[in-house]
Design a protein around this nucleic acid. Sequence first.
DNA 1: GCAAAAGTGTTCTAGGTACACCCATGT
DNA 2: ACATGGGTGTACCTAGAACACTTTTGC
Lengths: 222, 222
Amino acid sequence: MAHAYEHPHPAVTTDVVIFTLAADSLKVLLVRRAHLPFQNQWALPGGFVEIGEDLEVCALRELEEETGVTGVFLEQLYTFGAPRRDPRERVITVAYYALVPMDRLHLRAAGDAREVAWFRCDALPELAFDHADIVRMAQQRLCAKLQYSTLALQFMPDRFTLGELQRVYEIILGEPQDKRNFRKRMLAYDCIEDTGTERRNGNHRPARLYTVKSPGEVRIIR
Amino acid sequence: MAHAYEHPHPAVTTDVVIFTLAADSLKVLLVRRAHLPFQNQWALPGGFVEIGEDLEVCALRELEEETGVTGVFLEQLYTFGAPRRDPRERVITVAYYALVPMDRLHLRAAGDAREVAWFRCDALPELAFDHADIVRMAQQRLCAKLQYSTLALQFMPDRFTLGELQRVYEIILGEPQDKRNFRKRMLAYDCIEDTGTERRNGNHRPARLYTVKSPGEVRIIR
DNA sequence: GCAAAAGTGTTCTAGGTACACCCATGT
DNA sequence: ACATGGGTGTACCTAGAACACTTTTGC
C-alpha cells in the first residue's frame, strides 16, 4: 500500500517561517534542534508530513504547536528539494511563511525541553540545513508583497494607530515613509476603519484607533 | 537507508505545464495516460522524482523528453499535496511551468505509444488528477507575470517583429493592446534590439526584425 | 489604385512624491 | 512652557491611457 507505485519515496516535511513584529524589529521564530543532524543548531519549526495530512494542515499544526495561534495568515513559499540538503536521506521540504499579530502570541512554555526563541531577522544565528535560504526567500516575499497588497494588516492587533501601521512598513521595508502620503494611501485603500476611539500613550496628543474592515482578506493593490 | 527517519514517505512527482503559442492561441502540452488510474485521460507530463535527483532537474527532464527543447524558461509554480489527489497512494507533486518559443519545438515522434498533443488553453479536455487546477494556476501566473516582467520575450523566436510580440500579449491577456503605447513601452524597457533587417510577409509594408538583448534573462519591470 | 499591416507623436489624466506647520497631551 | 508624537493640504512630476494618419508593399 505504501509503495503502490514502483518508485523511490523521499521524506517530505513542511517548514514554517513564522514572522512577527516586536520591539521595533521583524522577528523569526527558531527552535534549537535536540537531535542529530545539526544537533543544538537553530532551525525553522517544521516536521514530517503524515500520510493523509494535507500540506497546509501540516504547516498549520507546526504553527500552532510553536506559537499557540490559529487563524492567521499562512501561505506556501517554495519547495526546496536539493538532493543533499539533509545529510541523512533525501528530504523535500515544502516551506510556508506565516504572519502573527504582535498581540496574539502565546508561546508554548519551553517545557518540552526544546529551546524556542524569536530572533531579529537582521541578526540570525547560523541555521541548520538550507534554512537560511528559506528565511531569505520568505523575507524577500514579505517585502515584495507589502508593496502590492494589504498584507501588512495581518501583523496588526484588533485596534491600532496609523503611526503603528506606518512603523510596520518602515521596519519591514527598512526605509522611512512619508507620514502624510502614507496615511492618504492607506485610507484610500478603504481597508481600515476609524473606530471613533482614541488611545493615550505618552506626553502627547492621543491617536485615533483603527480596525481592519475584513480581517482575513489580503487585497492586491495597484 | 531509504527510511533513515521514522516517518511515512509519500511519493513525490513533478508535473510541468508546458506553454507555447501557435495558430494565434496559447497552448498547453498534454499526454494521454496509458495506465490506471485515469487510463486514457489527458494529463500533464510529469513523473517521479528519483532519489538523488534535484526537483528542477526532474522537471527539465520531463520537459526535454516531451518537447526536445532545452535551455528555455522553467519556474516552480506551486506544490500540490491534497491527501487524496491520487487514488492509489499519497502523491505530492511539485508543479513547474515552462515557456517554449514557437519555433523551437521538436516534439517527440509518438513512437513510444503514448499520445501527445497541444491543446488550446481555452478548450482543454477533462484532465486527470487535479491537473485542471494546476493548469489554471499556471495560466494565472503567466498573465500576472506578463504585466510586471519581460517574461513574454521567452516565447519569441530569434528574430521577430513588434507586431508579433504584441500579438503574444494580446493572446495571453485576452485583450487588445494599443499599438503606439505598446511599442513605446517595449522599446523603453531596452530589452530588445533592432537588427536592421526586415521581413516581407504579405501585401503590405515589411516589418523591422528585433532580437532579445539577453535571451535568458527575465527582468522585473515597474 | 486598393487592401493590409507597419510605423509614428501629442495631449490628457491620475497616482506618487515632496514638503512644513499646528494640535493635544504629560510632565 | 516645553517636549513628544498625532494630525492635516498643496504643488509638482512622471508614467500610463487615449487617440488618427502616413508609409510600403503585393495584387
